[in-house]
Design a protein around this nucleic acid. Structure first.
Lengths: 191, 191
DNA sequence: AATGTTTGCCTATAGATTGTAGGTAGATGC
DNA sequence: GCATCTACCTACAATCTATAGGCAAACATT
């Protein structure tokens, strides 16, 4: 009897799960669906991931990492509004290109896991952006939270189709918003 | 045999589902869990709601309506920054008091259902806020989207615990953000 | 090359949730 | 008083999660 092994591993399952999330939505990521994708029985997956929850955590961590990498790449060598725009665009582009992974990145992690995740890099990079605006504490923290809210909120609403019913291009509003944020941050800077 | 009827109805199921969502999370809202709550068999619920998806839609519409009511109440009789703050606080307070319902309000609705939902009132009320800032189109649409992003983003990140790891009160950042938005909008107004 | 061990996926099984079909007792209407 | 309707029931099938244990291929050792 010829048996060809599927070549499963936590990493391959995580990546396949991320792809499945992008195609069908993060809530459609099940061990059964993943098993079908590898033409394998569901039970076989439990040798590689503890359970469905752990798989989702892995996908979330993978997405956070990937997103942080893209943002870091985009921001490299830039400062001020240039850096702000690069950060924001990399963020939004990722959410649009990988809606399922982006949703996964919002999966609730326990504090310890979150503290060890790339989420920390996101916060650091946001703070780095603000260096171009000379902002002291606690204003810097306020600004980090505001920027995070705008970026996540915009990506989230756009993905939900909230901007589809008004005949103004989402891209235009995005550019306007970034412009607005830049002005607001500059007016708050303490040189 | 004494049979006491549970008194099920779509409305009672929707409300109970909303309560369950607040207590255990929107993803824990299942027909089975709801049936246990009414001490009834799961199959009995199908006489009142078509399926699990329809129940979630009902909860989403209920939450959107409730949230719109609160915001409308808060905004009534106010204008300018006062109105902006009242809107924003009502929004955030609802998300904090009813995390499950707030999550439900983000449940993906098909375009027709969304168009007939209280989501439309949200957009109208946001536009009403902007009357205090004398903003022409398409800037008004841009501003509606930015405000929506900030409000939703902040509520979403705060609920996810994203602000728990820095020792600055979320309330402080919220006030700062609203102040920042007010300034930004005033600087964009076209009197 | 022969042997023992590990790896990788299997079958079998059980519980939970969703959903359909059909039944029955109590409430309602004439 | 009788027929109908309502509200909930049992029974059943499908899907997903999860555990336990089996077996053959792959690998390591000598």
């Amino acid at each position: 009897m010829v048996v060809v092994r599927a070549g499963l591993s936590p990493e391959r399952l995580t990546l396949a799960g991320a792809e499945l999330a992008d195609e069908a939505g993060f809530d459609q990521v099940t061990l059964s669906a993943l098993a079908r994708r590898f033409d394998v029985k569901p039970a076989s997956l439990y040798a590689h991931v503890k359970n469905s929850h752990e798989l989702k955590i892995r996908i979330a961590l993978f997405a956070l990492e990937e997103l942080a990498d893209r943002v870091a790449d985009a921001v490299a060598g830039r400062a001020g509004k240039d850096a702000l725009t690069a950060f924001a665009n990399a963020y939004r582009d990722y959410a649009r290109a990988h809606p399922g992974r982006y949703e996964a990145a919002r999966y609730r992690l326990d504090p310890r896991t979150a503290a060890a995740s790339a989420g920390v890099r996101h916060a650091q990079m946001t703070r780095a952006i603000l260096r171009g605006y000379d902002m002291a504490e606690p204003d810097q923290t306020h600004a980090v939270r505001m920027l995070g809210s705008v970026f996540h909120g915009y990506a989230s609403l756009e993905a939900a189709g909230a901007f589809d019913h008004t005949d103004v291009a989402a891209q235009q509003s995005w550019a306007w918003t970034l412009d607005c944020l830049d002005t607001a941050l500059r007016s708050r800077s303490t040189p």
